[in-house]
Design a protein around this nucleic acid. Structure first.
Lengths: 229, 229
DNA sequence: GGCTGCATGTAAGTCGTTACATGATTTA
DNA sequence: TAAATCATGTAACGACTTACATGCAGCC
């Protein structure tokens, strides 16, 4: 149960919550969303859509009357059952949630869960990465002798990347907790001050600007936990 | 031809060039080598070994007389044909060489090729990553409106990671070219000066120390292109 | 009148993992 | 003597990808 492959399902459900979409568009959005490496193929997406249709998680919506009648395309939307399933998947806090392949898509839809879940997933992933680091560094110190220059450089770069990822997660965790920064200033919550008078037309998503001492990620995602539906 | 799956084959051939090994050990070394995410399973390794044995790329070596007779374990070593195949694979400069899954293992054995190949692979990979960046950033600027905070942060982090990777590759390319640094000093090749009188017992691998202005990667891998067999 | 982009699908194949099965050897 | 680690394998399955097949629509 729930090994992988629910990844696509989750992604589809999440994307369809932003409005009805057809397969082709879904694929484009998906590739953009987690396009780092993998590019989802039609041979993978369409069967999944069929499966989800049969399972009653999604349904065909009225044949979207775009101005001119384009080629008949099948537009899908989520059913109540689909919404339920989405929420169930997003509430998972076990290892599946922070596995390499699952984490990204989960994170992308983080706005749909509450802070508690988010924290657990973020911390779970961080712990996982730290375990990896320790394991590799442990073995590294043992065999450190006869390593090739390039192999060593690859190793070093790998460690550095994971360390950076851990840092990123830590910043996110702090941001979730509302910890602006651990500095002396004691800024508990983000009150927006009106320098940087950027456009504030409809900013559901744009977090309030923060002072420059605050770590970048915190500055971007902090604020009074807005974003819940 | 040569899609993937030659990845394991290449890795095995490369590792066995450091001396005979049995499956179990091979797996450990492999997991350590490219253990960032994937952990190679036995169900994958052993059949590959059998296949390579049948293909004549490797052969069982004399049952390694370790002091006490352990459980009978099959130790493999490369055949001349295997060496040839290894060299052929390492000489590939096409896309297969810089694909996500292949690049790492290729890089780990870079010492076995000459600079020309290394440069082509490094540049190929860099170009590939830059294409990805451009594509994503292009699409990003188009749809930049209605993006969720978390989705946006994921995007940002992804871009940053890839940019960092590109930087890493650029440093490596410069190091290959013998470019110490683009500064005013005009240090063409690395002559080692005798401050830092560390142990120099058998340093096939340890590059000479360089001045602190030199980018880290360059400092680590530069030097008079030693390492070829 | 052909090419490119939109749009949907299917069949076959690849690559690898999980889970299972087995057994020796060292260590607590 | 039980557990962990070493060591080798196989069968079944999973999750994709590739390659193929089809067809409309707009542009040059």
């Amino acid at each position: 149960m729930a090994r992988r492959g629910e990844t696509i399902e989750l992604a589809v459900l999440g994307l369809l919550h932003e409005g009805p979409m057809h397969g082709y568009e879904l694929r484009k959005r998906l590739n953009l969303m987690l396009g780092w490496g993998r590019v989802l193929s039609y041979g993978s997406l369409y069967p999944t859509l069929k499966k989800m249709l049969r399972a009653g998680l999604i349904e065909e919506s009225a044949p979207t009357r775009t101005p001119v009648s384009r080629r008949p395309r099948i537009t899908y939307q989520v059913t109540p059952a689909g919404t339920l399933e989405f929420e169930r998947l997003m509430s998972e806090v076990g290892p599946t949630a922070w596995e390499d392949d699952n984490f990204d898509i989960r994170f992308a839809f983080f706005s749909s869960t509450d802070m508690e879940i988010r924290l657990r997933v973020l911390e779970g992933r961080r712990t996982r990465l730290q375990e990896r680091l320790e394991r590799v560094q442990g073995q590294l110190s043992m065999t450190q002798k006869e390593v090739d220059r390039y192999a060593a450089e690859l190793q070093r770069h790998g460690v550095e990347s994971v360390e950076r990822e851990v840092k990123w997660l830590s910043d996110l965790i702090n941001a979730e907790r509302g910890v602006a920064h651990p500095g002396p200033h004691e800024r508990t919550t983000g009150e927006q001050h009106d320098d940087l008078p950027e456009d504030q037309h409809e900013d559901q998503h744009v977090p309030p600007a923060a002072s420059p001492e605050v770590p970048a990620t915190t500055a971007r995602l902090a604020g009074p936990a807005a974003g819940e539906s």
